[in-house]
Amino acid sequence: MKLPERIEQFLNEGLAGKSDATKRGYGYALKSFADWLEGSDADLDTFVRSDVQFYVQYLEKVKKRSASGINRDFMAIKAFAHWQGRPDVVADIRRTKAPSITTKAPEWLTPSQRKQLIRDVDRAGNKRDYAIVMTLLGCGLRVSELVALNRDDVVMSERKGTIIVRSGKGGKQRIVPVPSETRRAIERYLEERTDDNEALFLSNRRERISVRTVQNMLQQYGVHPHQLRHTYVKGLVDAGTPLATIMSLTGHTRAEMVAWYSTPSEDEKQAVVERLFLD
């Protein structure tokens, strides 16, 4: 997607140090806002506070966007306005409050669902897809982090391995250990590669794989990438892993995000009440 020069300037100057994923998200949000402004005889340099308020209402009532999605777009507009030195145009904007992260447990796979997914992908026979699933489950990466991996970001030996995540959220780097089954899956995939492409995972066109391709592949098995990351974090929480260790492994910067995984799922609550008459 071709972005206006003004947006490109903001991404390079105002978001210096931010991850590529953050820049893409902000760029897309600002491009959508700029397109909408054209219909009201305004642009990114002349919009006023009422434009922002009406745009938020447009996203809510016409586009039927979720509260979290609207807030993400608004944060992009807010950052852009502050970069312009015009914080007044985004002051006190009314918008629907997103649900608290602690009110509902994230979606993770049960142990049996996790095993079934591994079996299904393994039986399909695609070594790349199997390596991707095992990396997401075994290392808890965000899909944007996974597709950005290069071969030299993975260091493995017979007894241990590590992945260097260079494109973490907020531009932060971290090192994640790789369990043995994930190491084996990656090694088997790389054994069939004959190219010299630096990317760890390639598309069928022999180019770096995209987020959308990974999402579409997982959709065939009835899951999405974030479910696999949630499953990884849930496993760490259930194993009693110290909070500092979980935050270091996952790249979470807020303790309440990790606490979120202690929220019981609907299935877990149902199982508890069913046992009331069995014990």
Rank of each mutant, 00 (worst) to 15 (best):
Thr194Ile: 06
Tyr55Ser: 03
Gly171His: 06
Tyr130Met: 11
Ile175Gln: 12
His224Tyr: 13
Ala105Leu: 06
Gly25Cys: 09
Ser68Lys: 14
Ser32Leu: 14
Leu149Pro: 04
Thr253Gly: 02
Phe201Pro: 02
Gln173Thr: 11
Thr245Arg: 13
Gln215Lys: 09
Arg123Ile: 12
Thr102Gly: 10
Ala259Glu: 14
Ile101Gly: 15
Thr110Trp: 07
Asp51Asn: 15
Gly138Thr: 08
Gly25Ile: 06
Val258Arg: 08
His230Ile: 02
Ser68Phe: 11
Arg24Ile: 13
His226Leu: 01
Tyr189Ile: 02
Pro4Gln: 04
Val133Met: 10
Leu37Ser: 04
Gly25Asp: 08
Tyr189Val: 02
Glu38Met: 09
Ala271Pro: 00
Asp195Met: 03
Ser100Trp: 04
Gly171Ser: 08
Tyr221Pro: 03
Ala239Gly: 05
Leu236Lys: 01
Leu146Glu: 08
Ala124Trp: 02
Thr46His: 10
Leu249Thr: 12
Pro177Thr: 04
Ile246Glu: 03
Gly222Met: 02
Leu136Ala: 06
Lys115His: 09
Gly138Glu: 04
Lys234Thr: 09
Met257Tyr: 07
Leu136Pro: 06
Arg86Cys: 01
Glu38Ile: 00
Val155Phe: 05
Thr194Ala: 10
Thr103Ser: 15
Glu191Val: 08
Gly27His: 11
Arg72Ala: 15
Ile164Cys: 06
Gly85Tyr: 06
Arg142Gly: 04
Pro111Arg: 13
Glu60Asn: 11
Val154Ser: 07
Gly17Val: 09
Arg6Ile: 13
Ala105Tyr: 06
Pro264Phe: 11
Ile118Glu: 13
Gly171Val: 11
Thr245Phe: 06
Arg183Ile: 00
Ser50Val: 11
Ala255Ile: 12
Leu44Asp: 10
Arg183Glu: 01
Arg114Phe: 02
Thr245Val: 15
Lys115Pro: 00
Arg94Trp: 05
Leu190Glu: 14
Lys234Cys: 02
Gly222Pro: 03
Ser100Pro: 00
Asp43Glu: 12
Gln219Ile: 00
Ala148Gly: 04
Tyr261Leu: 08
Ala91Phe: 13
Pro225Arg: 01
Lys2Pro: 00
Val143Phe: 07
Glu191Lys: 14
Thr162Ala: 03
Asn197Asp: 13
Asp238Gln: 14
Asp196Trp: 00
Asp45Arg: 03
Glu192Gly: 01
Asn12Thr: 11
Ala271His: 07
Arg49Lys: 13
Ala34Trp: 05
Leu243Asn: 07
Asp152Tyr: 02
Gly251Tyr: 05
Met217Arg: 06
Gly251His: 07
Ala91Glu: 15
Ser32Asn: 12
Pro242Phe: 01
Gln270Ile: 07
Glu5Asn: 04
Glu60Arg: 14
Gly161Gln: 08
Gln220Val: 00
Lys115Tyr: 05
Ile93Asp: 05
Gly85Glu: 10
Val90Pro: 07
Thr182Val: 03
Ile164Ala: 12
Ser68Met: 10
Lys61Arg: 14
Asp122Val: 04
Arg128Ala: 09
Gln9Asn: 09
Val147Phe: 08
Ser210Met: 02
Leu278Cys: 00
Ile186Thr: 04
Val48Pro: 00
Arg24Thr: 12
Arg205Pro: 00
Ala16Leu: 14
Gly25Val: 07
Phe10Asn: 07
Lys269Arg: 14
Lys64Tyr: 09
Gly171Gln: 05
Glu266Val: 15
Pro225Leu: 02
Gln215Gly: 13
Thr263Met: 12
Gly25Met: 10
Thr182Asn: 02
Phe33Glu: 04
Val273Phe: 13
Trp260Cys: 14
Ala105Ile: 05
